[in-house]
Design a protein around this nucleic acid. Structure first.
Lengths: 194, 194
DNA sequence: CCTACCGATCGGTAGG
DNA sequence: CCTACCGATCGGTAGG
């Protein structure tokens, strides 16, 4: 059993390092030898823990997708009005991104190196997530709390703004995820104009 | 002279195709052989027109940066109030992105494969552009047309939303750049709340 | 987890 | 613009 646990933790370690390297150098430009060196073993030894380079990518992307689904479901599960649900969805999304900057970056940019059938399945997950944001906006329009905007365009815009956070967010900075989320919600709900 | 012009146009052709391939497959995953095949020549022949793979990337990124600077300067050159300037900046930015989807995608994502000194210079250009958006927001706050928001966070958010357009914009769709820009400005200035 | 190695492919050059 | 080719590196496997 201790051998089993050790093996799991080594795989987790490989995944963590892969996540960081895929984010920094890109999936295609990260070699298994680079990765092995960072882990502290030989390249060939990686294959005792993983099946292939792509399996690593797939697991990182899929796990991150699960995190986002958990986040949006937290918002959807509440009985609140759409404007409150949207604020929660934004907050939860930001918590995922800021809590997993490397994984989010890979989820957002490196997924395109997936091959079939994972590529199509991944795209479906991504779209489903986006449609859940769109749904909240549509509900808000029905409820009369939101203006009658183009819900698709708005969901794309909001997620785009949220998705770039990994690019400039500094985990050690003074800006905390909750503060960031509050400002984001304010921007989206109230607008810039005085 | 006709030889000179032909040589230029071949280089332009290589650049156009490289732009598309770098966007679709990523810079690192695009081989010079792939590129040469798409152009219709042998890989070795590419080097009669370009110095290196990275030179291609650098030129694509730098040219696109120039397009964005021209865009923002159009807004800054007007004597209008900040809210009007921001709307123009958004419109001009969207015109650049939608008019050059491949180039914009490379500008936004593949620049990180640049090496020094281009990498640092590119980052400086990018930051300078972002600061010009921030400046408009700060002016708007001073003028009293904008709420006293965090101008840095807002400029990052606005550009993030704008920067993801290349990812979902369909040039053959019914959504025209001007319409998109108008909706964007409305979202940012007026907010979602009724 | 390692040594030894595979065939494939990379960016780029020499020489014409 | 081509043929022929370079050294380097790639993801991955065999066998222990």
């Amino acid at each position: 059993m201790s051998k089993f646990k050790q093996s799991l933790s080594r795989k987790e370690q490989i995944r963590e390092i892969a996540q960081t390297m895929f984010r920094e150098k890109g999936y295609a430009a990260t070699s298994m030898r680079d990765l092995a060196t960072a882990v502290g073993i030989e390249a060939a030894s990686l294959y005792n823990h993983i099946k292939s380079k792509e399996e690593l990518l797939k697991e990182i992307c899929y796990d991150c997708a699960e995190e986002f689904f958990t986040a949006i479901n937290t918002a959807l599960a509440t009985p609140l009005s759409a404007d409150r649900q949207l604020a929660i969805a934004i907050n939860e999304h930001i918590k995922v991104v800021t809590g997993n900057l490397d994984g989010s970056a890979v989820f957002l940019h490196e997924w395109r190196f997936l091959t079939e059938p994972y590529l199509t399945e991944f795209k479906n997950k991504r779209k489903k997530y986006r449609l859940q944001f769109q749904h909240i906006i549509e509900q808000g329009i029905v409820q009369g709390v939101f203006k009658p905007v183009d819900a698709k365009l708005y969901s794309l815009s909001i997620l785009s703004a949220l998705n770039w956070i990994y690019d400039w967010y500094k985990p050690d900075g003074e800006l905390k995820p909750d503060t960031l989320a509050a400002q984001f919600s304010y921007l989206i709900l109230e607008g810039l104009k005085r």
